[in-house]
Amino acid sequence: MQNILSALEPARPDRTTALTRGVTRLFLDMGLSPLCEFRLANGRRADVAALDRRGRVTIVEVKSCRADFDVDEKWPDYLEFCDRYYFAVDPNFPRDVLPSAEGLIIADEYGAVISRIAEERPLAAARRKAVTLRFARQAALRAFAPPLSA
């Protein structure tokens, strides 16, 4: 019954935006460089990706509600593009439904905390270079993109 009800619960883009803001604030406090809506080579788009000072890549998938997680079958496609993978959810999210092998961040619009550290899966050197170059190019293009007109 719970799965049926959660499937009817609408996605909450405003909540996703708030949780993403909290995750990026956490990463900035940790000395990581975050990039939202990072497009991967496989066509997927990670909610948040971040590089640390050693060049390690972290990807975070933000889940605004149970229904958002229940319908998501794409999250394993991100694993081959990062050293660490996290789910970010709000404090009321039912954590028992999330895969225990992945990291967990509890977030709100003001900040976030790491509740469960992600398993380290080091990228191969060639993959790390490709992901890092893609990250740098997307960040640079955003920095110099003309503003969108209304």
Rank of each mutant, 00 (worst) to 15 (best):
residue 129 K to L: 15
residue 112 A to F: 06
residue 9 E to L: 10
residue 131 V to D: 08
residue 37 E to M: 03
residue 92 N to Q: 14
residue 102 E to S: 15
residue 19 L to C: 06
residue 50 A to S: 12
residue 37 E to K: 11
residue 107 A to Q: 06
residue 38 F to Q: 02
residue 85 Y to I: 02
residue 41 A to S: 13
residue 24 T to W: 04
residue 35 L to I: 07
residue 44 R to E: 15
residue 74 K to R: 12
residue 40 L to V: 10
residue 121 R to L: 00
residue 5 L to P: 01
residue 77 D to R: 11
residue 11 A to F: 07
residue 69 F to E: 00
residue 52 D to S: 11
residue 7 A to T: 03
residue 9 E to F: 00
residue 42 N to H: 07
residue 23 V to K: 01
residue 55 G to F: 15
residue 34 P to C: 03
residue 33 S to N: 09
residue 112 A to S: 10
residue 20 T to P: 14
residue 112 A to D: 07
residue 76 P to M: 06
residue 85 Y to K: 02
residue 33 S to C: 09
residue 113 V to Q: 06
residue 79 L to H: 14
residue 150 A to Y: 12
residue 87 F to A: 12
residue 148 L to G: 07
residue 1 M to K: 11
residue 36 C to F: 00
residue 146 P to T: 04
residue 150 A to N: 09
residue 106 I to D: 02
residue 30 M to H: 13
residue 120 E to L: 15
residue 28 L to G: 06
residue 107 A to D: 06
residue 67 A to Y: 00
residue 113 V to L: 08
residue 3 N to R: 11
residue 126 A to K: 12
residue 58 T to S: 13
residue 97 V to P: 01
residue 82 C to M: 06
residue 50 A to P: 08
residue 80 E to L: 08
residue 144 F to E: 00
residue 124 A to T: 08
residue 142 R to S: 04
residue 139 A to K: 13
residue 79 L to A: 14
residue 49 A to Q: 06
residue 46 A to N: 03
residue 35 L to W: 00
residue 104 L to T: 01
